[in-house]
Nucleic acid binder design. Structure first.
Length: 572
RNA sequence: GCUCGCGUAGCUCAGCUGGAUAGAGUGUCGCCCUCCGAAGGCGAAGGUCACAGGUUCGAAUCCUGUCGCGAGCGCCA
């Protein structure tokens, strides 16, 4: 049951009828007709801007359209009244029985409530984390991981077919550095002194990798030149790092559907094929780029390179895909990778990148636009930095990895549920201050606690009812606080669609906070007004009262499920 | 210099693809404990939505410019 969707359908049907009957000009576009919760509850249960949106194209006065629409809507069983307000709003009040029906519908099909068909038949690839396989994940990665994971869940919830994907950057120079670093640990494991020179990865996490390598191959690479061992050590090290990364992701409850290796693109002709696809469109050429405007790099000199004409698809300058020595830039395999995604038949791609990849957005979109003939939309979500604090003081820790706070550190301190929720209480493009102490406080300014507390309160009430042998019956929703709460429940399906459309999982977190707030308000009113308590003296009254909180817990559960947070049964 | 993002209450932030009197938390002040605990609830005060123009019935939201903060800016990934 999607009340906002249902009422909007009613309104669209009436508008269509008005067009048929000549009350409105035919052929008006209706996409912009919205049905929203009014900001001021005094304005009713729902409001539509239909008359104002249509006034101009129809050449009519908004209030006239609204009045005509109001008259037609008055007959609908779900609508108690429709009145024109302000410049042409139409404020709707729903029939009093609606809220009870809504709660009943939620209880009847808890899994279904809020799920949407908006993504039906749409295949989406969400790429996230994609950290270099050179070490454990750090805090910054964890925010991207949580965001991508919640977004994927949100898209699934709204009916999309989703693939969660990790792009392994195992093709560049950094994995050679990794191999050399592991080689030093390998020597160390065999009793020699490791020489972790400048530019190598110093982290302790490579010690066991070197040891495992020593156990596997023995001493045969000792004293050998790099050409002998580099390739095999690299493969060994990458595999070990990916195992480490998967473990880190598992700590956060993140599981990928697919790991895609950059290296697999090399020496397989796939990069060449992608570039060829661009070349066929005349988008590849040999040329010399203009120097960057303003700041001139000291060593800048004109250089002829193979370039991608990304400006033809909205970029600011064309981009190099080959270095001057003829080898690929990192952009080339990325083009091939996205070409691969397109060829796998996805309708939409989402890349979740760190904010330092901001300069990369336009060229990647240009590539996808060109390679898909404009058919596949690429959305790139940039994740801003996480600033860690503890009790208000900047937090630095380096026990595992040398110089950064790892994802594991954070999860060990606060737990996966808290980490996930907190990271989703901010828009992805806003920096996030994460205080390891504050997020464990049990107070209203800690949204994790507040939402969980609401859920625990409901569960407690339900346990109490169950102990008395009472199960939820036909809901009775009368009091203003009850109606407010039911109204908030009615917004859930609409919220899901808005959040999914905008790729904005943080909206779910904020919604849950609001829902919890309305619930706590009602709960507390029970202190002053015993008739509002969920558990009543007689069984019939209790049965009617507990339906609403149960519906609340169902929606909280569903919302937390999208965020990847486990709802708790009780507070500890 | 150019590109992108951000600028909303003292502080931390929402603001639903342009809507009605811009909302929460926190902090300050007042009131309220038999369901899960006051770890909560109710209320008051607190705003030039950075600034200046523009678009229109209507702008925090869209456009232009200015200022401020952050990130990025031809062989690095």
């Amino acid at each position: 049951m999607n009340l906002f969707g249902e009422i909007r359908d009613n309104i669209l049907a009436e508008l269509a009828a008005m067009m048929r009957e000549g009350a409105l000009p035919a052929g008006l576009a209706l996409e912009n007709v919205a049905v929203e919760p009014p900001r001021d509850p005094a304005h009713g249960d729902m409001a539509t801007n239909a008359a104002m949106v249509l006034a101009r194209p129809a050449g009519m006065k908004p209030r006239d359209i609204a009045a005509a629409l109001a008259q037609r809507l008055e007959g609908h069983p779900r609508i108690r009244s429709a009145e024109v307000a302000g410049p042409g709003f139409l404020n709707l009040r729903l029939a009093p029985g609606t809220w009870g029906e809504l709660v009943e519908a939620i209880l009847a099909a808890p899994e279904a409530y809020g799920r949407s068909q908006m993504g039906r038949g749409k295949r989406v690839n969400v790429e996230y984390v994609s950290a270099n396989p050179t070490g454990p994940l750090h805090v910054g990665h964890s925010r991207g991981a949580v965001f991508g994971d919640a977004l994927a869940a949100l898209l699934e919830y709204s009916g999309h077919e989703v693939t969660r994907e990790y792009y392994i950057n195992d093709g560049g120079a950094q994995v050679d550095v990794l191999a050399r670093s592991v080689y030093e640990r390998y020597r160390e494991a065999l009793g020699e002194a490791a020489e972790i020179g400048e530019g190598l990865y110093p982290g302790d996490y490579l010690v066991p990798v070197g040891k495992a390598l020593a156990e596997k191959v023995g001493a045969r690479w000792l004293g050998q030149p790099e050409e002998v061992w580099l390739e095999e050590v690299r493969a060994f090290a990458i595999e070990a790092m990916m195992r480490l990364i998967r473990e880190d992701l598992a700590l956060l409850g993140v599981e990928m559907d697919n790991f895609f290796s950059e290296r697999s693109l090399y020496d397989s002709g796939r990069i060449e094929a992608a570039i060829e696809a661009l070349s066929e469109q005349g988008l590849i050429y040999q040329g010399v780029l203009e120097p960057p405007k303003g700041k001139m790099p000291e060593d800048w000199e004109p250089r002829e390179q193979t370039l991608f004409r990304s400006t033809a698809h909205g970029d600011d300058v064309d981009r190099p895909i080959q270095k001057s020595d003829g080898s690929w830039t990192y952009f080339a395999p990325d083009i091939a990778y996205h070409f691969d995604k397109i060829s796998r038949g996805f309708d939409r791609l989402v890349d979740v990148f760190g904010a330092d990849h901001g300069g990369y957005v336009k060229r990647m979109k240009a590539a996808v636009s060109a390679l898909s003939g404009g058919k596949v939309e690429l959305d790139i979500k940039l994740i801003q930095l996480v600033r860690l604090f503890k009790d208000g003081q900047p937090f630095k820790m380096s026990k595992r990895a040398g110089n950064f706070v790892t994802l594991r550190d954070v999860v060990e301190q606060v737990g996966a549920d808290v980490a996930r929720f907190v990271m989703l209480t901010r828009k992805n493009d806003a920096p996030l201050d994460f205080d390891l102490a504050r997020v464990l406080e049990q107070s209203r300014d800690n949204p994790v606690f507040y939402v969980q507390y609401a859920h625990a309160r409901v569960r407690s009430v339900m346990r109490r009812a169950e102990a008395a042998g009472i199960s939820p019956g036909a809901p009775l929703i009368e009091d203003a606080a009850e109606v407010t709460l039911a109204r908030k429940l009615a917004e859930w399906p609409r919220l899901v669609e808005i959040a999914a459309r905008g790729h904005e999982p943080h909206r779910v977190a904020f919604y849950l906070y609001e829902l919890a707030s309305d619930f706590h308000a009602l709960y507390n009113r029970g202190n002053d007004h015993p008739h509002l308590r969920f558990v009543q003296d007689d069984a019939a009254a209790t049965s009617a009262k507990i339906a609403l909180p149960l519906a609340v817990s169902i929606v909280i559960s569903a919302g937390l499920g999208i965020l990847g947070v486990t709802p708790v049964e009780e507070m500890r």
